[in-house]
Structures are given as C-alpha cells and as structure tokens.
Design a protein around this nucleic acid. Structure first.
Lengths: 203, 203
DNA sequence: GTCTATATTGTGATAGAC
DNA sequence: GTCTATCACAATATAGAC
C-alpha cells in the first residue's frame, strides 16, 4: 500500500467516531470530521462513499465494543452466581470505560431502529441456551427463584446501563456535580447492583 | 382573539411534538411540521421565532408529562411500602402510556445536556427531604435495609425506564417481535420489578 | 394571521487536475 | 491518494403583500 493510505482511513474513522458520538447521525458534519484530521471532505468520500456508510462502520464498531465479551461470559465454566457477578462486573466496566459509546449505541437505535436493528443483530448473536438451562436447574434445586433469562439480563443491563444513558436527568434531579460517571460512582453502584440482583434471585 | 389563532398555535405544537419525537432536534424539519397541518413554514416563525424555541416548548411539555406526579407521590400520606409500590406503578404507567415521550426526554438530554439540563431543572424540582427521612426511620427500625434515596430512585427508574429506551436492543438480543412495549409486557414486568425492589429493601 | 418570494447559509456529494 | 472547485439541493429564517 502506498504512502499512508491505511493511516488516513483510520484517522477518518476515529474522527468520525468522535463526531458521531458527540452529535449523532443527523447532527454530525462531514466537514468537522475532515477538519479534525486536516484533510478535505473529498477524502471521506474516497474511503467511504456516503455519510451513511461511514456511520454504519462506526456504529458496528461501537456495538462490538459494548457487547463483545457477552457470549464468552455466558458460556464460561464457573458457578452460576460467579457468572452473574462477572456479568454485572463486565457491564459496569463497559459503562464506566466507554460511557459515550454506550449512550451512542442505545440512543441511536432508539429512534432509527428500522435501520440499525439489522446492523446490531449482525454484530451480536446472543447464545443463551446453556445459561438458560443453568437458571432452570438452579431454580429446580431451589438455589434461586424461578426467573427468565430475559428478565435477568434486562434487570442487569437496566441497573448497569441506565445511569449512564440517563445521567444528566439524575444529575438534575439530585443536584449532583458529575457523580454519575467516574470510577467512584461505579464502585459504589457495584455493591448496590449485586445486592439488588442477588437478593431478588435468592428471595 | 381573532379567527383561530389559538388553534393554529396548538396545531403547530402538536405537529412539532410528533416530528421531534420521531426525529430529534437535528433530524426534525420545520417543513414537515408545517406540511402536517397544511400551513406554511412562515407560520411557525410567526408563533415561535426559531426552531430552537419551538423545540424547547415541546421538551418542557414532555418533561412535564413524565415527571409531573413525582413530588405528589413522594409526599403522599401512605405507608413507605405503599409509596414505593405507587412510585413503581406510576413510573411503569408513564413508560407504558408515553414510550416515545419518555425515550425523547432521555435521549435528547443525553447529548445536549448543557442546553437541556437547565430546562429540565426548571420543570422538575424534586422534593425529597420527607421521603428521605421515611427511609432513614424505616432503616433505623430495621424495617428495611439502609439505602440512599438516590440509589432507590435510580433503581426504580432504571428498571422501569430502561426497557423503553433500550427496547430495540433487547428485541434484537432475544429475537422478540415487539414485546418491549404494550400492556402485556408492562404487567409482567411490574411483578418482576416489585420483587426486585422489595427483596432488595427487605434483605 | 397567513401566504409568496427570497435571502442566506450549509451540506452531502461529484468532477477532474495533480 | 489528495486537493480545489463546484454542483445541487435543503434548511432556517426574513421581508413584505394581502
């Protein structure tokens, strides 16, 4: 490959990610993306034909960042309780390390679901069978209450992800400075969430 | 007032709400709003000088719809447990009856927080003192575990609101048709959420 | 109060030289 | 591969007639 072709493409992607995370699809400007890295808009159309195409690339990557370890975790060879703890830890870590990416993935698909759901599903195929059996077995042995995988994962994601997405609202409601992000909040939340989930399961 | 001035203004607001809920601030087109009610764009600028002004009106109303009963509920004269149940019921009802409004309020402030937080705070001033004391007292009497108002409300909102905002993601993850909205889902979720919150509090 | 016409600026995209 | 120039159109906003 000649010159720094791979480099420019990469730079465009990174600048685009920054622009899309900040302003969303319709708010983002190709002009800003080009400016950030000191090239012209023409370069963007050279590597990515359309704004839509560039956005889809960024969105795919973002979904990947948030959900890449999910299937590995679900099939890991550890006890059920340990697995749930790992699931919560991982979700909190993702939320804490990439809050803007997480908010981006959720807020964009919230409206443009017709467009983005197929792309999302291309990136994440949830393997939930084994984990579902573990839950059923544990319930049969009275180790946990009988709950569906859907409800369990919904609860975990809700408790871990909602504070990031709705952060500004709860800052306003409680007059916080910026406490809905950062490691301090995350560590404190971890205990609360573990309590909430485990007490629910072992009620 | 002459002719149907009040009517046109009202029609603009309703059409604008529809457009903003569907496409967000930057995606919305004044052209579409005017078309919906058969007037010209000029009329919008007659009643609302700018797109921003019209949006702010719609956003204010939307915040109101979701959070209007919150303070009344918090100061209601019922037992602590009843109050928490009412809080959950009300949040689920809001989410169920106005899913698009709820998603709109959250997703828009998620990015444009510098702009929208002041507007949000203008609409909602949380009166939490009394409720906080109830929690402290109940904890002192060992009726519930010691939890902060922030954590309790965060958990309730997370469990009630997250499914609406992140609906498309969980549809994709579980291959659902449209089960994340509608009264069926809401009724089923209510039991789960009550279990989750109450078992956590009385652990 | 409502419309037509237009100003003004912005924005994604393409053509073509180097 | 990168740039300059430009197209084509879209969008908010304003001026002024009726």
């Amino acid at each position: 490959m000649s010159k720094q072709s791979k480099d420019t493409r990469q730079e465009i992607i990174e600048a685009a990610r920054n622009e899309f995370l900040t302003h969303g699809f319709e708010g983002a400007r190709l002009h800003n993306i080009a400016d950030q890295i000191g090239v012209t808009k023409a370069m963007i159309h050279y590597y990515f034909n359309t704004k839509k195409e560039l956005f889809e690339h960024v969105y795919r990557q973002s979904v990947q960042v948030i959900f890449e370890d999910l299937n590995d975790l679900l099939s890991k060879d550890v006890s059920l309780f340990k697995k749930i703890e790992l699931l919560i830890e991982n979700s909190l870590q993702k939320a804490d390390q990439n809050p803007r990416v997480l908010a981006f993935v959720i807020t964009e698909i919230s409206r443009k679901s017709d467009w983005l759901q197929p792309i999302f599903e291309e990136q994440v195929e949830l393997q939930v069978k084994a984990f579902e059996e573990e839950l059923t077995d544990a319930a049969a042995n009275y180790e946990i209450a009988s709950v569906s995988v859907q409800d369990l994962l919904m609860n975990i994601f809700a408790l871990c992800y909602y504070p990031v997405v709705a952060g500004p609202i709860h800052q306003s409601l409680f007059g916080m400075d910026s406490s809905v992000s950062g490691n301090g909040f995350s560590q404190e939340r971890k205990g609360v969430i573990l309590d909430t989930i485990l007490n629910w399961l072992t009620a």
